[in-house]
Write a protein that binds this DNA or RNA. Structure first.
Lengths: 187, 187
DNA sequence: GTCTATAGTGGGATAGAC
DNA sequence: GTCTATCCCACTATAGAC
């Protein structure tokens, strides 16, 4: 598991993506238009095309940020004290709740893997693999995590549902399959 | 758990929703426009507004059909012979794979519950509740089902993943929590 | 229940000057 | 790197005749 994600873009591009992220978080993907983005930056829409070839390039940049955030937070979770399975789940849930629109654009629909930074997706997902000896059980756990997150932020659970308990119960069924942390003799 | 879902609409409305469903399945939600829908019906777009107040009413009708399909197939799964947990999972996965676009519009984003037939959503989801003594475990299982389905149809699992095994492993962790079927003395 | 005509909105994107 | 001007597109929806 590599420990850091690759990145490459100009300061101006980064600033544009910052603002795009702010619009996305505040008002959702429908509000993220080239006109609006330019307006928030104090420029006109056509000027954006000097920095990004098209709108989807901006969206891809946002998604890549999301993957970096996932990967970083998940790695923190694995080294914190306490149960690693729980820590990882809490980290994922927190990201989804804090940035629901970002979470949605990251996970919704098909993803053109040829457009995102090579290796980034795997890098961000690797921490889940660390928790299970069997890769297919790790994927089942990922499905549980994602299902809980997306159903929660979309308010799909029934009004009376106790989500903290649903999370706890789901973690409880997966926990016996999870592996303990590897500690070196010198630690 | 009630055994059938309510329904009410004219023959013409049903025909329109049939065609809308065909477009959706064939080409996805972006292709489902009022112009296109009318065109496939051999009429002009404005004529549709004699049958539905707006486009969202057509989409709601499609979503309601999806919920009825879910509820019916899930109920079949519970009375088939074999393991009920597995049967239910197979039923859900089959629907998602056979009708991926329908599955997406049913489950994507927030749902305005005031617009769908009262009780329909609960009716369609009730079979999952039948399988677990604890409601919050049932919701965790639902999250697993949905996560697996949506990640599969969106091709989010890594290329080498063995999804049949991921399903089997996930079902295996939930199975000890599931309840056996209730059989009457006369059966 | 269908039509024609059209309003109204909004979006992505390009050309070419500065 | 920014601007103005503009194109082109597509969509939802309404008004009013038949």
């Amino acid at each position: 598991m590599a420990s850091s994600a690759p990145e490459r873009s100009s300061a101006r591009q980064q600033q544009i993506v910052d603002v795009a992220g702010a619009i996305l978080e505040a008002e959702g993907p429908d509000s993220l238009t080239m006109r609006r983005l330019a307006s928030e930056l104090g420029i006109k829409a056509p000027s954006l095309y000097k920095h990004f070839p098209d709108k989807s390039a901006v969206e891809i940049a946002l998604i890549e940020r999301g993957f970096r955030l996932w990967g970083e937070r998940a790695r923190q979770a694995l080294i914190e004290r306490g149960d690693r399975l729980t820590n990882l789940a809490v980290a994922y849930r927190s990201i989804a709740r804090e940035h629901p629109h970002l979470y949605r654009i990251m996970t919704m629909g098909e993803l053109d893997r040829s457009r995102i930074a090579p290796g980034l997706e795997e890098w961000s997902g690797a921490p889940i693999g660390e928790l299970f000896a069997d890769g297919e059980t790790a994927r089942a756990f990922w499905a549980f995590l994602h299902g809980m997150c997306i159903l929660e932020i979309d308010h799909r659970f029934p009004p009376g549902a106790n989500l903290d308990r649903a999370w706890a119960n789901g973690l409880a069924v997966f926990r016996p399959q999870s592996t303990p942390p590897i500690t070196t003799a010198s630690s």
